[in-house]
Simulated assay, not measured.
Amino acid sequence: MSLLLIGSAFAVQAKNLTVYKHVDKNGIIHYSSKKPVGKSYNILNVRCPECAAWRNSVDWNTTPLIDNKFSLEIESAARKHDLEPALIKAVIHAESAFKHKAVSSAGAQGLMQLMPLTQKTYQVSDPYDPLQNIHGGSAYLKHLKGVYNRLDVYLAAYNSGETAVEKYGRAIPPFPETREYVRRVKILYKRYQQSARLNAANQQPGNLTINASGR
Rank of each mutant, 00 (worst) to 15 (best):
A77L: 15
S32T: 15
K101Y: 13
S40L: 05
R55M: 08
S71R: 14
N16I: 08
G214R: 10
Q132Y: 05
V103T: 04
P49L: 03
S195Q: 14
N61A: 14
G107T: 02
Y128N: 03
Q203S: 15
K34I: 03
N16W: 04
T121M: 12
V165K: 08
L151I: 15
Y189Q: 00
V153F: 01
V165W: 03
E95P: 00
N199C: 03
K190D: 13
S125P: 04
N56S: 11
N159D: 07
N45P: 02
A196N: 04
G214E: 07
A108P: 01
P130C: 09
F10Q: 13
W60K: 00
V185R: 11
A90Q: 13
K21Y: 13
D129C: 01
G136T: 09
P205W: 13
S138E: 03
Y181Q: 10
L114Y: 00
K190T: 14
L83V: 06
L4F: 15
K190A: 15
I29P: 07
E50Y: 02
Y122V: 07
K101A: 02
N61L: 10
D152M: 13
P127W: 03
A108L: 05
Y168R: 11
N61Y: 12
L114C: 06
R197S: 15
I28N: 06
R55K: 13
M115F: 03
T63W: 06
G7V: 06
L111D: 06
Y192H: 04
P49V: 06
M1I: 07
T209S: 08
P174L: 09
A52W: 10
I88S: 01
I66G: 08
K101T: 12
K89N: 10
P36D: 14
N159L: 01
S125G: 13
F98K: 01
L5W: 12
V103H: 02
K25V: 01
H22A: 09
R170D: 04
H81Q: 10
K15Y: 14
A77G: 12
Q194I: 03
S195M: 10
A106E: 12
Y20E: 11
V124R: 05
R79A: 08
G7S: 15
G169P: 08
Y31I: 05
I28F: 07
A212G: 11
R170W: 03
M1N: 11
D129I: 05
A90F: 02
V165C: 02
Q123H: 14
Y158D: 04
L188W: 04
S33F: 03
I187L: 09
L151R: 15
Y20H: 06
A156M: 01
R79D: 02
S57M: 01
F10S: 15
R183Y: 13
V103G: 00
V12Q: 12
G27K: 02
Q193N: 13
L198W: 09
L65P: 14
V185H: 07
N149C: 02
K145D: 10
C51K: 00
